[in-house]
């Protein structure tokens, strides 16, 4: 299964991904119209910050997702074919139980719509919008084995980096 990975060494924290994500999930999909939309278009992937560098964070579509277990409306499920965690937004009541149990804090609450937002891998698209928008090629949509080959062997856990 493909995942949304980020080569942290290449990420500059420019947030192009956030904008592309919000735009992709807007109604108009047009930047100038999207800013006027109500409810405002929101991103599902967030560029978080470690002490020293940016850390784009999105739903990791876990093998055993805690959010699906915690979901009390039945709106979350793990798609057995694609492996993605899918959300039926119509059924969601905005109880934030999924947010409470996500070990990565990868659920973004949309307070306006009372909706927990999570990466949906841009559904049917071959490449998620954030990957397309990333100017440094840091964000990629790949199989783990494939991604493993692209990262340097001496990368460090994100908060330990001091340079």
């Amino acid at each position: 299964m493909k995942y949304l990975f980020c080569n942290l060494e290449k990420c500059l924290g420019c947030k192009s991904c956030e904008i592309a994500c919000a735009l992709e999930h807007s109604r108009s999909k047009d930047l100038f119209q999207a800013v006027e939309e109500k409810p405002s278009p929101r991103y599902r992937l967030k560029v978080e910050y470690g002490k020293e560098r940016a850390f784009p964070l999105a739903c990791r579509h876990c093998d055993e997702p805690a959010c699906v277990v915690a979901c009390m409306s039945g709106c979350l499920s793990k798609d057995s074919k694609t492996g993605a965690v899918v959300q039926d937004e119509e059924r969601c009541v905005g109880c934030w139980m999924c947010l409470m149990v996500c070990p990565y804090g990868a659920v973004n609450p949309d307070g306006e719509r009372k909706l927990p937002l999570r990466c949906d891998r841009c559904r049917e698209k071959e490449e998620p919008a954030c990957v397309v928008a990333c100017p440094t090629g840091a964000l990629v949509f790949m199989e783990p084995e494939e991604f493993k080959k692209t990262v340097t062997r001496n990368s460090q856990p994100v908060t330990k980096k001091t340079s």
């Binding site: 995942y3 990975f5 060494e9 991604f147 493993k148 001496n154 990368s155």
Partner: peptide
């Protein structure tokens, strides 16, 4: 930390 998480967090090597 799972294998996949290691990649996500870039804890390789």
């Amino acid at each position: 930390i799972s294998e996949t998480d290691r990649l996500f967090n870039q804890m390789v090597g």
